[in-house]
Nucleic acid binder design. Structure first.
Lengths: 209, 209, 209, 209
DNA sequence: ACTTAACCGAGACGGTACGTCGTGTCTTGCC
DNA sequence: GGCAAGACACGACGTACCGTCTCGGTTAAGT
């Protein structure tokens, strides 16, 4: 669905040449993405309107539509531009401590104002394959790649079974957090991360015969 | 937000008396709920319009608005009216088998056409407290109540720790299913239920010292 | 368009017998007509709604529709029921005085709260033949019959030409009043009646050769 | 009530500059006014709907509401745009002939399809000050200005009294036409104009002492 | 310096759905 | 069988955004 030439981090023709004509306004681009995130946080995916984004960014509606074909693409880009930042996965020498820290980090994000944005994207993604794909590409996989490394270290240290299914394990660790985040049937506290981690990793130990 | 007197399963004044005037048309009510579910499955929460629901149900738009204040309330009711049915939780003598069956059941629902409806509700619920609350009340808690019983049997049989946190455990079992359902980063198969069950319950055994 | 059996002053079967069932409520009928006139004065023909009439009369909408097929018929009846009253046409011995008094009387009505009702009827009548016909039958002709008599007296007294066209003359006298009433381009005062009368009757004198 | 900047005959900013943004579509404007007149002729003021106007003009409903705040304003404008045309008041050397011709002209309009539009406006105007004011400004006064001139010529030729009240006289001439037009209690023929003219002007002659 | 071309803002355009209101019909139980 | 109450299907209301379009004006690179 996202078909426009270089909606994200593009810097013009790659071949050294420049296209003729007025170059794209970087200022407008950033104002649009910023407004998108703000309104996403305020009104959610469904409540956010392109019209409001353009208005708030002091930009013509045309300029938004010129670069993003639809709301989902815009939101995905805005989210991506915001998320390109640290994902700090320390190596403390213990899988449990490492994973617990990561999971606390995620919970912190979910409970912050950016949580609203994440939930808006997950909600919008239920009707838009591209949006949920963008979420996976920009948010889920980068983190999970780090988590794989953490798990691998755990295996080599003998804290986890050699043949453990890493995706199964990571879903077991993160799934409950997403569930509580989205369904809100129980509190989502840092402490929950610890206890969850303890429960699940206990089932992943080598000698649990 | 849901403020109209008895939008769900109401059967008129309880005190024997009847309200004056033409009674509410049961036929219209059912046609509306049915159309809602159909369109929800087709277009999702965001794509569904009240106008289309009314049209498909051969009903005046007014009649919809008379009984449901907004789309969320309508969808919640429709979902509720559909879900009041069996949740078969057998007692096979093994927590693992019992839970595994339940979880396979849920996966089956998620993969069926009704999965679309559930995801629509969870998506819509991110912008509507009442909708997500309705989901919990009509779908989550009834199932979870049964699951509590299953766990209790497991405890008394010595398959689970006495002091296990049941909500933590159930979230660990179901959370990953919801996560895969909503984010679609990995396949959601019946086999996943079994392996998930094995992993998590292993961490909940009494003597896992 | 007015097809219901006896919407106006009917008192049931004429043959002494009574129809079976509950007799028509005279109280409801009067309340409806009264409400109609009030709302007509407040909101005009277009702004008046049957729903409001029923509400104000503390009556079911059905009861209105049972007896009057549409708004025009109702308004016509209400107007008629109100207008059955004095049209005092004195014989002072002078056509000019007689006519002037009549015309002042009309202007007084037009400027009173009942003027609003008359204008509502004339407005509504532009889209409804029955309504304008009712206006003629109930309001125009009764007055005009009296006016004919006045003119005839004038003829026999030699104040008017023998062969004068009475309708032409009466339209010349009343038309300007209606015009100012409806178009409001100039003041409609009692004095206007006198001057109008003087002008027109001057042209109707016998010896204006 | 009519508050939009230049709904009528506006030709853009007068200071040479142009407002930014896409200019208003002259084609849409004319299509709307044309449709309005057509529907007004067909269904009258009350029966005409904005929705139908937009549909017939192949225009979005928004475009109508963007420029006209309500039905009355739209109708007034449509009527005005139609009426800006010839009002031929010849100078034959006789007030009576001149006036008679004008009056015949009016009767001709009233009896044509445009009569329906006039009656619709007069009807609608009973509930809308602006509408009736527009009628006066666009239709009544321009004609009357010409008529004043005709009368003035008559006075200077000695056909009319010097001190004649021109408005009284014109109302006496036109009022009966409007009355027959609106109440339809008698035929409105060209011949009526002549006889009316004869009667009233006879009362306006200088020496009728 | 002048042309060319793509960008920009503004805002009107034809539409769709909204949630409300009134229409005229109907379906109750009571009188 | 009339009555009040009020639900019903219908259709227009006036509003908010949609995504597209047409303007005048800006900004550089390529003459």
């Amino acid at each position: 669905m996202r078909q426009k030439p270089w909606p994200v981090g593009h810097r013009g023709k790659q071949d050294g040449k420049r296209a003729p004509g007025r170059p794209r306004s970087e200022q407008a681009r950033q104002a649009i993405l910023r407004s998108t995130l703000e309104l996403l946080g305020t009104s959610g995916f469904a409540g956010m309107t392109i019209e409001a984004v353009a208005m708030r960014a002091r930009v013509g509606k045309t300029t938004v539509y010129r670069w993003w074909p639809n709301k989902a693409a815009l939101v995905a880009d805005a989210f991506a531009s915001d998320t390109i930042r640290q994902l700090h996965f320390p190596d403390t020498g213990s899988v449990r401590t490492d994973m617990s820290r990561q999971m606390r980090q995620l919970i912190k994000i979910f409970r912050s104002s950016r949580g609203r944005i994440v939930s808006a994207i997950l909600a919008g993604g239920q009707n838009d394959k591209d949006l949920i794909a963008a979420f996976r590409a920009r948010f889920l996989w980068p983190r999970r790649r780090e988590a794989y490394a953490t798990l691998r270290r755990g295996i080599s240290r003998g804290e986890l079974r050699r043949n453990i299914d890493k995706d199964l394990l990571l879903d077991s660790l993160y799934g409950p957090i997403y569930m509580r985040f989205l369904i809100q049937h129980a509190q989502l506290t840092p402490r929950f991360a610890d206890r969850l981690c303890a429960l699940v990793l206990a089932g992943a130990r080598p000698h649990s015969k």
